[in-house]
């Protein structure tokens, strides 16, 4: 049995200790947020927060967690079930096509906005660079993150257009 703390709750799971956190979240804890996209740390579909930092859960052996705290997309909602600010902003911007990448996008953006609700537009892009979207929803995802920053009392600072 391995103990882990996810979204504030401690769980005991009976899995091989090398099992990546992603599989534990999905198959043992029935959490859908983190997705299997590559299993190789290349796409960000599986992003979760580990002690507040965005990590690829597909590369975190569950035995490595010890007392560190995991937060997933589900954990961004408040206890009464109200979705997190980013989820609301993504819905408001209709920022999804297939939506498979979206959970990872939201979680990674959460890490940024928890640190800084006034990032520059380029900082948002650089921060989201590890996450892939194949549907081309990027422009809407950026708008949703900007909206969420505003909802959190900040906002994305416009900067001069990037120069070559």
């Amino acid at each position: 049995m391995i103990a882990l703390t996810v979204n504030g709750e401690t769980h005991q799971v009976d899995v091989d200790p090398d099992t990546p956190l992603l599989y534990v979240l999905r198959n043992e804890l029935a959490l859908n947020g983190a997705k299997f996209g590559c299993g190789l740390g290349q796409c960000g579909a599986c992003t979760v927060l580990l002690d507040g930092k965005p990590v690829y859960s597909c590369l975190v052996p569950v035995a490595a967690l010890r007392t560190r705290k995991v937060r997933t997309l589900e954990g961004l909602a408040s206890p009464d079930g109200t979705p997190g600010v980013l989820s609301i902003a993504f819905e408001a911007e209709q920022a999804a096509q297939c939506g498979y990448c979206i959970a990872g996008m939201i979680v990674r953006a959460q890490a940024l906005l928890e640190r800084n609700t006034r990032p520059t537009a380029d900082e948002v892009r650089a921060h989201l660079a590890p996450n892939l979207c194949r549907c081309g929803t990027h422009m809407r995802i950026l708008r949703a993150v900007h909206r969420a920053a505003e909802m959190m009392g900040g906002g994305v600072r416009a900067v001069a257009e990037r120069e070559p």
Binding site: P17, D18, T19, P20, G39, L40, C58, L59, V60, P61, V62, A63, A64
Partner: peptide, 20 residues
């Protein structure tokens, strides 16, 4: 032994023989 577990969960998907 503990590091062997870490390797199996974090590194093997690329570096173990048979990995893609």
């Amino acid at each position: 032994p503990e590091a062997a577990v870490l390797f199996a969960g974090a590194c093997a998907v690329c570096h173990e023989p048979g990995a893609p």
